[in-house]
Structure formats: C-alpha cells, structure tokens
Design a protein around this nucleic acid. Structure first.
Lengths: 199, 199
DNA sequence: TCGTCCTTTCAGAAATCACTGAAATCATTG
DNA sequence: CAATGATTTCAGTGATTTCTGAAAGGACGA
C-alpha cells in the first residue's frame, strides 16, 4: 500500500490542480521562450523556478523537467548570467539551490538592460557607422548614384533616429521604475479619455 | 575588356563605398534577426528591401543574398504576412517586385501589433487561466499546500498585472503615434532634469 | 591526503531548423 | 487553349542548435 494511501481522494485531486497549474504555466512560458530568442528548456527552467516557492537543486530540476544533469547545469548558468536567477546556499547542505527573482518589474528591468546592451547598442553603432561612411562618400558622387546614396542615407538616418528615441524612452522607463510607470499609464489614459482644450 | 572599363577608378571606388555600406547594414540586421526570433535570412531580406531604393524581384534577391528561389519566396511571404513588405506590380512586366515599408515608426507599430497578438495575448490568457484554476482550488486546500498555492497565486497575479500594464502602455504608445512619442520623450526628459517642487 | 559528494565541461548523438532545387501550380498572352 | 514565364510548394539534404552522459574538476570533512 503506498504510504500516502490515507490521503483521501479529495486532497489528492486538489493538489493535482496545483500541479496542473504549474505545469501549464511552465509549458506556456517555454513556448514563448522560442519567440524571445532563448531555448524552450531555458524558458521552462525559468518558469519552474519562478513558480516554485522553495529553491530547487539540480536534481529537482532534472526530475521535474525531465532533462539531463548537463543540460540543467548549462541552462541554470545562462539564467544566472542574465541576472534572472540566484544561487542559494542552505546551511548544512552541500548542494547548491537556485531561486528566481519573483518581481515582474525586476525581470523587465533586467531583460531590458541586457537587450539594450546586446541589441540596441550594436545595431545603433553599426547604423551610425553606415551613416558616416555615406557622409564621406556622397560628396564624391554625381548623378543617379548620388540620388541613390542620398535616399539610402535618409532611410538609415530615419532608422537611427528611431533607435535613439527608443533608447531614451527605455532609459526613462528604467528611471521611472514600477510606480512611475503605473502612474504614467494612468495619467496618459486620463489625458486620452478627457483631453483638455489647451492641447 | 569589361564594359565599364571606362569608369575611372574614383567613381568605381565611390560606388563601392555605397555597396559596402549596404552590405554592412544587411549583415548586421541579419545578425540581429537571430535575437528577434526570426531567421538570419529573413532579417537580411528585410534589410535588403529596406535599403534598396527600387523594388526588387525574386531574381534580384536571389542574386544579392545568394539564396535559392524557394528560400527567397518563402521568406518574402513571411515578411508580407508580418506586414513589413508590399508586393509591387510594374506595368508591362509580368514579374512581381517587392518593396519594404521604409518608415521606422510604421515598422515599430506593425511589429508591436503582431507581437502583442502572437505573444502578449496568449501568455496573458494562459496566466489568467492559471489564476482561475487556483482560485477554484485554494478553498479546498488546508495547511501547507494552501500556503504554497497562495504564494503561487501571488506570483501569477504579479506577472499578470505586469502584462496588463505593458499592454496598456503599448496601446497608449500606438495611439500616440510617432509625434506623440517624441513629445513624450522630450517632456519626460525635461521633467527629469528640472523636477518642479509640487510633485 | 583520501574519499565523498556535488558541479561543470564537452564530445558525440539527437532533434530541430533552414535551404535547395525540381516539380507542380498559377497567370498571362498570342 | 497551348505556350510561356513566373511563383509556390515540399521532399530531401545540409547546417545548426540543443541535449545527454560520462569524465574531469572542485570543495569539504575525516
């Protein structure tokens, strides 16, 4: 007889709902990971740690996600590199445990900072370099190729300007923090619903 | 002797700068595509159309990116599905040509709408369902498992609330449009640099 | 220092994703 | 409607990414 046989069917089924809920969340977060440019497993691992109330060790992760030790180790490390997961040491236990940051705004900040560093900045730099190259080259050109180059320049500048605006809005969002963003969202909604005359 | 041999070395080298610039832009945009969850080729194709002053046909694309007809066709279609590229018909030519939308703000709007539809909404729905499942289940639970479920619920609600805020800010951004966003960026910068007393 | 327990690494296997090219389909013209 | 030219599809192939499991590398206590 299994040791939890005394548990009545109600209790078992209720705990099952909790487990089902976690599983659903983990599965969906994993699917989204693909769209975010990280692997499904890495996103699932993040979801698992996010939804777990206690820190988990490598073996917990291996068991719950059905993945190998190496895979778990690599993906945990990536999440730590991203700043989304912390190592936790429990007194009197040689194992390492892991816990996710559970504040959604912290997640947003961290991911935005990383993406700015990895994406916004490199592409902005490259476009800047492109613009500079054309600035050098256009005065030498005549006729059609000059027109073409000028239209290219216009488009590159448009993109560059856009990236600058996004960058500064992102900086402002990060400065404002959660409360500021909530306030901003409210203020703007109100301004929209009852626009005053002195536009 | 090649037919453009009469072109002097200056002209050739200047046109080469334009070509190098385009190539650099295309290469970099392609690398970024990987981070955005689309394939390198699709991003390169988008960059090529973005930076080309004339619409291109499939053969132009095949030649310039060194890819097969099938690959070109599939990726052009995806870009059209995303709303980033238009078909263009030239009178008296049976071929189809393609051109990218060149307004950066339009790109932003279009990509944001698509991502809301493909990512924000599905994940929001799923988390909503998770919250509902726990709402049903928690009253049945007692003791530890109740506490655990309540902490899960707290985290799921936190994430849900965050997604709602992001969604409404996104709506506002789309309503404001380019000019509004520029204005907002300026206003907020000023407010930051010289905060008035009556906060 | 050795033995134990845990973590990390990495070569090779497996799975996934992207691409090619030829055949099928579609559209246009004579 | 047949001929021509363009486009789309998709099975097979190639490339890339992800995963496994075993070996190597620590850290700690005895």
């Amino acid at each position: 007889m299994p040791k939890d046989a005394q548990a009545n069917s109600r209790t078992r089924s209720d705990t099952a709902v909790l487990e089902d809920t976690k599983a659903l969340f983990i599965r969906r977060w994993g699917e989204m990971g693909i769209y975010w440019g990280i692997s499904r497993t890495m996103a699932e691992l993040h979801a698992l740690l996010y939804i777990s109330t206690e820190p988990l060790c490598t073996d917990d992760i291996m068991r719950q996600l059905q993945i190998s030790r190496g895979n778990a180790s690599m993906n945990v490390r990536s999440l730590i590199d991203w700043g989304l997961v912390r190592r936790v040491h429990l007194r009197g236990d040689r194992k390492e445990y892991f816990a996710a940051e559970t504040d959604a705004w912290y997640l947003f900040e961290t991911i935005m900072r990383e993406r700015r560093r990895r994406e916004l900045e490199p592409i902005g730099e490259t476009i800047g370099k492109c613009v500079a190259m054309l600035d050098q080259s256009i005065p030498q050109l005549r006729g059609d190729s000059r027109d073409v180059a000028q239209e290219c320049q216009r488009r590159l500048r448009g993109m560059h300007q856009f990236l600058v605006t996004v960058g500064s809005l992102l900086n402002l969002a990060l400065d404002l923090g959660e409360k500021g963003m909530d306030m901003l969202a409210k203020m703007l909604s109100e301004a929209k619903s009852q626009p005053d005359g002195k536009s």
